[in-house]
Simulated scan of single mutants.
Amino acid sequence: MNLGREPGEYGRVVVLYGGDSAEREVSLISGAAILAALWRQGVDAQGYDLAEGGLVGLETMRPDRVFIALHGGDGEDGTLQGALELLKIPYTGSGVLASALGMDKQRTKMLWHAWNLPTPESITLGEHSDWRDVCERLGLPLIVKPVHEGSTLGITIVDNVEALKSAYQEAARFDANVMAERFIEGDEYTVSLLGDKVLPAIRVEVPSGFYDYEAKYHSNETLYHLPCGLPPAEENVLGELCREAFAVIGGRGWGRVDVMRDANGSFWLLEVNTVPGMTDHSLVPQSAAHAGMDFDALVMQILDTSMGA
């Protein structure tokens, strides 16, 4: 993907970060790291917090292209991508449809089911759900998630019927749409995709047993195994599964797919992230580094996705 472009070929690049979603803090950190990398590479780049002036403020900056580092909410659900297309401003990563689908865990799973890709069964929850019936259908433990939220915000593992309603209420603090999903006991993997490349898989190990927001962004005890420990043939199977899962929703440019592997060795697709984090704890930079690509090179290759590369 790296076509050896000169920094000036990108024109004026605006890194969009911040916003007002629950993932604002992570977005600010990602955006600052990306902006610093672009400056080191001699790119004419500026940062812009979308919460400060909205699209009007962005237009006044007259960007030639936008590097999206806006996690959650409008940054990942296709809203921003659609606005940028109307403004005819090229941007990094997936387009409107893939962004909207990737942000909606349930509709992503529906597509995967239609393509016969393995993903755990799920049920939509509401205030008046039959909690006992949900537990009987999915089994215990099960996992409760906001449908449109990222960074594991609002997620709870439930191991008894009595805890299910409170888990629903916690998830509903983040999103009006909440789902329960069959819990897969086993190892968690994440696979990063960059253009037509499948980057090395990472096995995530959390001493607490739950890869939550604290473990993902703040804990120094979370272990990221690279290499992931799978035999090469099995890692290839995992990589191809994730490539297909990303392609099914129309993903392009770059992204990340999260997967569980059960005790029988079967892989189960969990979700897609179309604007992954780029912090010092983030997984895409770790995977790229293991493949021999430093952070600056990774940022430049992602920027190339705005060029139709």
Rank of each mutant, 00 (worst) to 15 (best):
L298H: 03
G53H: 11
G139T: 03
V299N: 01
E185V: 13
L38H: 03
V299Y: 00
D262N: 14
V198K: 05
E188P: 12
F67R: 04
L193R: 11
D74W: 12
G239P: 12
C135V: 08
V248G: 00
L298C: 10
E6N: 09
E23W: 01
R107T: 13
R12T: 08
A297D: 14
S208W: 11
P227D: 07
E181A: 12
Y48F: 15
S208C: 11
H148N: 15
L97D: 07
R24Y: 03
N220E: 14
L223P: 00
L269Y: 01
P7M: 07
V206N: 06
N160C: 14
E6A: 15
I155F: 09
V204T: 12
R252P: 00
A288F: 06
P227C: 04
Y10V: 02
H128Q: 12
R107D: 01
A69T: 04
L223K: 15
M179P: 06
V147Y: 02
I89A: 09
S122V: 00
T92A: 10
L230G: 08
M300Y: 10
V259M: 07
V144C: 09
I157P: 04
A167F: 10
A245Y: 02
E149Y: 01
R261Y: 09
P141S: 03
S208I: 05
V275K: 01
G251R: 01
A233S: 13
G253W: 11
V178E: 08
R137W: 00
P90C: 10
H225N: 07
L3T: 13
Q81H: 10
G11P: 07
F295L: 04
F246V: 01
T119I: 00
R182F: 02
G11S: 04
H225A: 14
Y17W: 12
T119D: 04
G154Q: 11
V284R: 01
V161I: 13
L194S: 06
E9P: 00
V26M: 03
I302M: 14
E240Y: 01
